[in-house]
């Protein structure tokens, strides 16, 4: 019962992050939506390890995801700062040069 509840919560969090990734067009808000998705992955790894009896493996993978998640946030924020300096906006539609 607890695992089912946790998985439903994980699916809800995943849905919020995915929906945010699709509708948002601000660079920093996109990074925030990506962070929600990766935090969902961390929780899912730990719960999957608990369910399959491989607790340590799930926790190791969760730690790797946390590190990767942090680095994605850092690189994404650096990109956002540089985009703001060069284009004057955080709107990702301004980055598209294919229309010009």
């Amino acid at each position: 019962m607890t695992e089912t509840l946790l998985l439903i919560g994980i699916l809800a969090l995943f849905g919020v992050g995915l929906y945010g990734m699709m509708i948002l067009h601000n660079f920093i808000k996109l990074v925030i939506a990506l962070q929600i998705l990766t935090k969902t992955a961390v929780l899912a790894f730990v719960i999957a390890g608990e369910m399959n009896g491989q607790i340590q493996l799930g926790q190791s993978l969760a730690l790797t995801v946390i590190v990767a998640d942090t680095m994605v946030a850092v690189v994404g924020l650096a990109l956002a700062v540089q985009v703001r300096r060069h284009f004057g906006t955080l709107d990702i539609r301004a980055l598209s040069t294919l229309k010009r």
Binding site: Q35, K39, V42, V46, E50, I55, A62, L63, I66, D69
Partner: peptide, 17 residues
């Protein structure tokens, strides 16, 4: 994560995340 018994991951997530 702390309630699930993953104490190390919970601390790392709290401090880093």
């Amino acid at each position: 994560l702390y309630r699930l018994g993953a104490w190390e991951i919970a601390i790392i997530e709290l401090s880093v995340g």
